[in-house]
Nucleic acid binder design. Structure first.
Lengths: 142, 142
DNA sequence: TCGCAAATGATAATGGTTATCTATTAGAAA
DNA sequence: TTTCTAATAGATAACCATTATCATTTGCGA
């Protein structure tokens, strides 16, 4: 992971660049799934035993405020974080509760066109998020 | 509200019919928004002061297990309940945090066709839920 | 009407998240 | 480089929606 890249990410929004922020951004950026604060904490604590869980929470929240990461609530009420800021949909496995990204420009186009041509009375749509619920086929999903 | 309708709803899935279940189903069925357990509790407690919050939680959960209502997690990590079991999308107001139903058969058709023609490798989709995030126009939305 | 499994009510426990408060530190200014 | 200060980190307690526990009550089939 490029230190300069992370430093720029953190600094660009006026946040001070600290070791903790470096490590936490890094862990999130490299995570396969959409980790909770606790999962990020577990990921970094071996190499950084002095970083506290509270700092992980606060740091992730700072990143969200700064717009360099996203967060969302999963079906179990856990806050999950995501280094990808672009709009995207999710796959949710109802068995394993895993959550993966799903991006498809055709789908985005389809939805945008739909909402353009079918405006909702009394409501202005800024963002459309789709969750595909189902079951992963284990042999391929990992 | 028709007592027989509620009684059938509750009984059809093998649940015993109690006063509490009558009152709780009723409150949910007539709710405009998608209430939390606590909101349902507030709704019924004046007329039913002996019903406990724990019972509301347990009862709503029984209904979900029985398939006669739905539940979902909102963006703030609150569990919300919904008497409408048919698949439908939601409007989420980022200002007031209100959640409303949105049903559109064209949209459902569009999404089903999309997923038919664009199967996701390693994942079997059973349900598609869409959240339109934006802002309500107060004069119309209520 | 009886008997019992299911449901209720009261209460405590859980656990993810947030708040608080003191010590530390990044980064601007001198 | 040194100094200064607001921002940040760490430790800890508090919060609060939800769940678990358990004794009591009750719907409903026999």
């Amino acid at each position: 992971m490029n230190l300069e890249f992370v430093k720029n990410k953190v600094t660009q929004s006026g946040l001070k660049f600290t070791h903790q922020r470096m490590v936490i951004y890094n862990a999130l950026y490299n995570a396969e799934e959409h980790p909770t604060a606790e999962l990020v904490f577990d990921q970094i604590k071996l190499a950084n035993p002095t970083v506290s869980l509270g700092t992980v929470y606060k740091t992730l929240d700072s990143f969200v405020q700064a717009g360099i990461i996203q967060k969302f609530m999963d079906q179990n009420g856990l806050m999950r974080f995501d280094a990808i800021v672009e709009a995207h949909s999710h796959l949710y496995c109802m068995e394993s509760h895993e959550i993966r990204d799903y991006r498809n420009v055709e789908l985005e186009k389809l939805l945008n066109e739909f909402i353009q041509s079918h405006p909702i009375a009394g409501f202005q749509v800024d963002e459309i998020s789709v969750v595909f619920k189902g079951f992963k086929k284990p042999e391929i999903f990992n």
